[in-house]
Simulated scan of single mutants.
Amino acid sequence: MKKLKIAVQKSGRLHDDSMAILKEVGISIDNGKEQLKAAAKNFPLEIFYLRNGDIPQYLKDGVVDVAIIGENVLIEKGEDIAIVEKLGFSSCKVSVAIPKSAKYNSAKDLEGKRIATSYPNTVNTFLAKNNIKAHLHIINGSVEIAPNIGLADAIVDIVSSGSTLFKNGLKEAEVILKSEAVLAVSPMISAEAKSILDKLHFRLKSVLRGRQSKYVLLNAPNNKIETIVSILPGMNSPTILPLAREGWSSLHSVINKNDFWEVIDELKQNGAEGILVCPIENMVL
């Protein structure tokens, strides 16, 4: 039976988040600690554990069909590879960082400077866009040490919390791009593998919708229902059920978690009571 071959990062935060979402979509993986390849027990899927920087080439060559990978890595090494879905985790930035004592007003301050980076293509695109000429030092790993040893005036690297920059006497000067984990597909994927990918993608979208939503149940007087319905449109419209208490109804709906507190405040102001909010595991449309 044909299996969909998917690459994930061998170790690190992206690995952990990738395995977590595969578990959420109901895929059980028999995985030994030192294995470089593992098969799912209940879905036609085979996982390859690879170095993050190598994954774009595996996609281009068709060695794997799809991958969960950082968008920043695709921009650097595989800009021609299609993204099927943005996954909303493992967020980071690719940023310019300079010594804390240095001044930075705009990208023009990089003119003629030495920049250390592991992302030469990304940096060159940024420099060309801003019509800047600078000297690149390509370093794999520990980029943040370059200004301290006199190798560079600035660096361009991944920034998550900023703690590594702080420890090395650097500060973030400008964000070049923002990145998150994405599901990327090989240009050489077969029709059979694409059919399996469609099933996986359907499950992923259901989980992602659930993560972005909250299920809300509330009680409201009937004369306030029209106003509350305008606040809670839900997917199509809220569910409205009569209560044993005369003149009152129960409303059920879904809200975006990013709008959660604003919506709750507005509901209370318009007569809603007994508001119950529940997480959503999956939301299938």
Score class of each variant (00 low, 15 high):
Lys257Gln: 15
Leu267Arg: 03
Ala193Asp: 00
Gly70Asn: 11
His135Met: 01
Ile138Val: 15
Lys10Pro: 03
Asn52Met: 09
Pro221Asp: 11
Leu204Trp: 01
Val229Trp: 02
Lys103Glu: 11
Ala134Cys: 02
Ala82Met: 07
Val284Arg: 01
Lys100Cys: 07
Ser118Tyr: 02
Ser11Lys: 15
Ile115Asp: 02
Met188Thr: 08
Ile231Gln: 04
Ile225Trp: 01
Asn168Ile: 09
Phe89Thr: 09
Ile81Met: 05
Arg209Ile: 09
Ile176Gln: 01
Met283Glu: 11
Gln35Glu: 11
Asp265Cys: 12
Gln35Lys: 06
Asn121Ile: 10
Ser142Gln: 13
Lys37Asp: 01
Ala193Cys: 00
Leu14Lys: 06
Gly141Cys: 09
Met188Lys: 10
Ile189Ser: 02
Ser142Arg: 13
Lys205Asn: 08
Ile139Val: 13
Leu4His: 04
Val175Phe: 03
Ser237Gly: 13
Ile132Tyr: 01
Leu4Phe: 07
Ser179Gly: 11
Pro187Ile: 13
Thr164Pro: 03
Lys2Asp: 10
Asp16Phe: 08
Ala134Ile: 02
Ser249Phe: 10
Lys77Val: 09
Asn105Cys: 06
Cys278Phe: 14
Leu276Thr: 10
Asn148Asp: 08
Pro187Glu: 08
Glu85Gly: 04
Lys77Thr: 08
Phe43Glu: 00
Leu267Glu: 06
Ile55Pro: 00
Val64Cys: 05
Met19Ala: 06
Ala272His: 02
Arg211Glu: 12
Gly112Ser: 07
Gly112Arg: 05
Leu110Thr: 06
Ser163Glu: 14
Ala154Gly: 03
Ser142Ile: 13
Pro238Cys: 10
Asp265Phe: 14
Arg203Phe: 02
Ala97Thr: 06
Val254Met: 15
Lys103Val: 12
Lys103Arg: 05
Glu262Met: 14
Ile255Tyr: 11
Ser28Tyr: 10
Ile228Gly: 01
Pro238Arg: 10
Val175Gln: 00
Ile145Glu: 01
Leu59Asp: 02
Ile275Phe: 05
Glu192Tyr: 08
Ser195Cys: 01
Lys205Val: 12
Glu226Ser: 12
Ala97Met: 05
Ala184Asp: 07
Glu192Gly: 05
Met283Asp: 08
Leu197Gly: 00
Val25Glu: 07
Lys178Glu: 14
Phe89Cys: 06
Glu111Phe: 04
Ile196Asn: 00
